[in-house]
Design a protein around this nucleic acid. Structure first.
Lengths: 223, 223
DNA sequence: CCACAAGGGTTGCGGCAGCATTGCGGAGCT
DNA sequence: AGCTCCGCAATGCTGCCGCAACCCTTGTGG
């Protein structure tokens, strides 16, 4: 469980970080909205705790900004601006809860739990081919929902082919998918991967076959 | 939009009903818990507003009762019992929000909107894997109902893996689950945690195993 | 129909990167 | 002070993967 804390009072942030840590929550802390945007780009947080008065502006402005990037991470606003009207403002901008300072850590935890109980349904991108389901972000492959673990390079070949199934993939494209520009290749390593991959796909009866297009590249077909 | 209001002060209920009506919300009202159960059986509400002190008992007891029937209708508790401790109690019983009386209708509306924004989904408070039951927000792990206490970092690793059991979890994802961006790691600390965790899982015969996916990450399997 | 060449397929081997395990010591908590 | 947690580092091991040798397939020209 990992959250982002956007808060400019250093002492409070420190204390919260420690307190949440005792509850098994890892906290990233920043004081600036600009950094916060960057951090959410790099990490997937379970929730965000947001102060309103910040050195570089009104914290609430962060909410639409985040939502615009397609993230529906739960946000709890923590602030001394605790008039009912201000609470309405925060909630209607897209916050999931609004807690006035000062507060008890226990209540914050309870509200966090309440908010996290309703998990955001992130649609994970998957590639399907035959009976295979490939999740390229998590590097996982399943055949009829049972996991199939492949060596990393074979998995890279597989997803490059599956992504463009029924279409030929250039040999050079495959090489680019598997090796970075520093890794030179001096033999038929790619062919070897293809070969081993084919065998595994048959063993697992994955419902796909890999065909060669002479002098061009490879082609994945569904059966 | 249709909600259920469980409230014994007739005047407040009347006023709320009218106020919500102006926002296009249809309100069913009852003063008794027994009726409430029956009403939720017959109707699908978008949300439930719940008072605590009721003629026939403590309103909070209604929450687990409702959840047990498989309904995850959002619940907002409205009550004069507004001490932090009482708020924690309500939220941890499964309420989605907790609003102390007196309140402004506008704030109630904003909180309603906030709660309704999130797609309803069965609250998965616990992660199950093998004979393990993990409550990541309360930091508890049990094997066949007997508690197992783990060091904090091992518990973080465990829940990150269990949350995505049968799927590979990237090494970087695990690192992100256990360390924040300030804590640098210069060694195989993560591997060490995995190793110790494995031993404990075996000792406790937890019914799960942790597998390595070379160059990618780890994978938890149930036996 | 055969010869030949070139691209592709398969497989064993060896090096080494990545992983498992464990003891140690410092740090933090009670 | 005694405890546990946890990062660190040393050690041994595993299995991925590049390599290369050899075989197979396809296509072309005579």
């Amino acid at each position: 469980m990992r959250i982002l804390l956007i808060e400019d009072e250093r002492e409070l942030a420190e204390a919260l970080s420690v307190a949440l840590g005792k509850h098994g929550i890892v906290t990233d802390h920043t004081m600036h909205l600009a950094d916060a945007v960057e951090l959410t780009r790099q990490n997937l947080y379970d929730a965000i705790l947001l102060d309103r008065r910040l050195p570089d502006g009104e914290g609430l402005s962060f909410i639409p900004e985040l939502r615009r990037t397609g993230k529906d991470t739960p946000i709890i606003v923590l602030t001394a601006l605790n008039e009912p009207r201000q609470r309405v403002e925060g909630l209607d901008l897209g916050a999931d809860d609004y807690l006035g300072k000062p507060f008890l850590v226990e209540e914050l935890m309870a509200r966090l739990r309440a908010v996290l109980r309703r998990p955001p349904s992130l649609a994970e991108l998957k590639i399907m081919a035959g009976r295979l389901v490939i999740d390229p972000l998590h590097l996982s492959v399943t055949v009829d929902a049972t996991p199939l673990d492949l060596p990393r390079r074979e998995l890279l070949v597989l997803s490059a082919l599956a992504r463009r199934k029924e279409k030929t993939v250039l040999r050079s494209t495959l090489e680019a998918a598997v090796y970075n520009y520093e890794e030179e290749i001096q033999s038929n390593a790619l062919d070897a991967h293809i070969s081993r991959l084919r065998k595994r796909l048959i063993d697992a009866s994955a419902g796909v076959t890999i065909h060669n297009i002479r002098g061009v590249g490879y082609l994945m077909k569904e059966e």
